[in-house]
Simulated assay, not measured.
Amino acid sequence: MSSLPHSPSGRRAAPRPLPLPYWLAEFGRIRSAVLTALACLLLSTGALQLSHWRLNSAEDRLQLAQRTRDAAYTRYAHVDNEKRDIRNFQPRFVELRTRGLIGAEKRIEWVDAIRQVQEQRRLLPLSYEVEPQQTVQLAGALDLGDYQLQSSRMHLHMDLLHEMDLFNFLTDLHQRAFFAVQSCNIKRLARAVGAQGGPTLGADCTLNWVTLGTPAKAPAGNASAAASPASKETP
């Protein structure tokens, strides 16, 4: 066995240190550059994350602005359509309201229209009875907005010299008011032999006077309003 060398003084020599790898021995020369590179990498990563967050935030604001713009455009288009509809339909609406279709029913004007037609056509005396106004229940869906279709039924009796008296009466009355003829029954009247100038026919008709009105609001503490009684007239 070989023995460790001894120094001249008789002491054992200290072991020589192991040499460091060359790249570690030279690291001191590039340490500043490496630290600078690490700092730049950290700053770049932080800047990238911040840019990504700001990009997402900007995209969210852009989408919000686009939705706000689209909503504003939709409202503008809706208002523009409403203005165009008002311009197109207002004259017709005013005409229908003037003629009594829209608004509260005008029974006095109906009676006056009947009297005027009777006088102008020189018709024989007639009689009628008007029932209380009722809301019409439509078979199909019809968008009437805030209005309701309402009807007042009239039972009309006329003595006629001939059939055209009835047709002319209804035609003239249609020019003054809105109503629908539900039914008409015409029967021949018995006349004495040789009698002249009297009625030859009798007509019994049912007319429905229609209006578009807003629902009546019941007063506080009273859930239902009493219906007006039927009226009878004999011009």
Rank of each mutant, 00 (worst) to 15 (best):
S44Q: 13
A13Q: 06
A71F: 04
G221N: 08
L166S: 01
T36S: 12
L201M: 10
R69H: 12
V117M: 08
L24D: 10
E109Q: 12
A37E: 06
S183I: 02
D172C: 01
A65F: 03
W23V: 15
R67F: 07
L156Y: 02
K232R: 14
A216S: 12
L161T: 08
L124A: 07
H6N: 05
P19L: 13
I30V: 15
A218W: 01
N56E: 15
C205W: 08
L212A: 10
L24C: 13
I86T: 11
V94K: 06
K187F: 01
G46D: 09
R153W: 07
L35Y: 08
T36P: 01
R115H: 10
Q63M: 12
T98F: 08
K232G: 10
Q182P: 01
T206P: 03
V210M: 15
R97W: 01
Q182W: 00
G145H: 05
L42Q: 08
V111T: 08
E95V: 03
L18T: 01
L38E: 08
L41D: 02
L189A: 04
S151F: 03
R191G: 03
E129N: 09
K232P: 02
T206W: 11
T98I: 00
W110I: 03
P8T: 14
Q49I: 11
A113G: 02
P235K: 04
G46L: 15
Q134K: 15
R11W: 09
F89I: 01
F93P: 00
R121V: 01
S7L: 11
K217A: 12
Q63G: 04
R191D: 02
D172T: 00
V181G: 00
P15G: 15
I108L: 11
T68L: 11
S9D: 15
L55M: 05
E131G: 01
P19V: 07
D159P: 03
G103D: 00
M164S: 15
V210Q: 11
R11V: 14
A141V: 04
S183W: 02
P17T: 02
H52P: 00
I186S: 01
P91H: 04
A71T: 06
G100K: 04
S44N: 09
R191I: 06
S228E: 15
L43G: 07
H78T: 15
K217V: 13
V111C: 02
F167M: 10
C184G: 01
R61P: 00
P5C: 08
S9M: 11
Q137D: 06
K217R: 07
P132Q: 09
F179Q: 02
S224T: 14
Y128W: 12
G202K: 06
R153T: 06
D143C: 04
F179S: 03
M1P: 12
I114E: 05
N56M: 11
M158I: 05
V117Y: 06
P19E: 10
L35F: 11
D85N: 13
R121Q: 14
A225T: 14
L212I: 04
C205N: 03
A225N: 07
G46V: 11
A25M: 07
S224N: 10
P235W: 07
T234F: 09
L156W: 03
L173C: 04
T45H: 11
H157K: 13
H162D: 15
E119I: 00
P125R: 09
T211L: 10
H157F: 03
K217Q: 14
